[in-house]
């Protein structure tokens, strides 16, 4: 559906690339997870793919056709949910949705249904500026669905919600996949990615480290990891080490000899463990 080749992006005053030559493709009807710690370049990538930031270098293809300039066909077909809830605070929830609904060239969803779907029907006529952060986030999510998008970009749409609302949004996302919506889902929450995504890309410092399905990743790295927590200068340190890698085996011996160990778990690796293992970095 979407193919990205060698995408680079540098913010004006910065010396480093926020997006540093990434390539990936997203299949139609797939949920593609974009995972990485704070500042990895996830939102920047989403902004380029949605036309908010210009393509400085690299190529984007939609259904095998190179996109030179995003046109209204594209904007009519995509839905975008932002990481900062960006709503008109003086308008009610319903007015916010209706205003955006009027921007599209084709029939749109009813705002009342959408509000009901994200459990905001009781607050429909309240000013959105008086919503809690989680409510605003759900409003932004609902807004991204107003034009029944074929391609949906979700930037941290599930993070920051309470458990029951997180479940609600995840269920909607699963339902959308059933309807063959292609979804680009950005998150630093590995559990969410594990539960929802067909494939995930690990991104770190603007580079994609690996792309695979959560299942494959866990098969590849799983069951052979131990998590060791030990005390070091009064702080608790955590390391995840492979039981097959020679260097890691060496390290396990070293830690057991020199440090005070608090816990050792051999475990079914989570995506989070794998991420730390692959990038050497904790998630935000």
């Amino acid at each position: 559906m979407i193919e990205v080749k060698n995408l680079f992006f540098k913010y004006n005053k910065s010396h480093e690339y926020a997006v540093d030559g990434i390539s990936f493709d997203i299949n139609e009807g797939e949920i593609f997870g974009f995972l990485g710690p704070n500042g990895a370049g996830k939102s920047t990538t989403q902004k380029i793919l949605t036309g908010i930031l210009p393509v400085q270098d690299g190529e984007i293809y939609l259904r095998k056709e190179r996109i030179e300039k995003f046109n209204n066909d594209y904007f009519n077909a995509i839905g975008v949910s932002f990481e900062q809830p960006n709503i008109y605070g003086k308008l009610t929830g319903k007015e916010n949705l209706d205003f955006f609904a009027s921007m599209y060239d084709y029939p749109v969803q009813s705002s009342s249904n959408l509000l009901k779907m994200v459990d905001l029907d009781n607050a429909a006529n309240k000013k959105a500026g008086e919503y809690s952060k989680g409510m605003q986030q759900r409003l932004v999510f609902a807004r991204s669905l107003i034009n029944r998008p074929k391609i949906l970009f979700l930037d941290e749409s599930v993070s920051g919600l309470d458990p029951s609302n997180a479940v609600l949004i995840k269920e909607i996302i699963k339902e959308l996949r059933k309807q063959n919506t292609t979804i680009f889902l950005t998150t630093h929450n590995m559990t969410v990615a594990d539960e929802l995504c067909d494939r995930v890309a690990f991104i770190n410092s603007g580079k994609i480290v690996l792309i695979d399905s959560p299942r494959n990743l866990k098969l590849r790295y799983g069951r052979k990891l131990v998590k060791i927590e030990y005390e070091n200068d009064g702080c608790l340190n955590k390391e995840i080490l492979s039981l097959v890698d020679d260097k890691d085996k060496q390290r396990i011996v070293e830690i057991t000899k020199t440090k005070l160990i608090e816990t050792i778990h051999s475990q079914e690796a989570t995506l989070e463990d794998i991420f730390i293992k692959v990038t050497g970095r904790e998630l935000g």
């Binding site: 949605t50 009519n76 932002f82 960006n86 008109y88 807004r143």
Partner: peptide, 13 residues
Amino acid sequence: ESETLKALDVTPL
């Protein structure tokens, strides 16, 4: 300031 401009950016407007 509210970044609603960005939300408008991704519509056909």
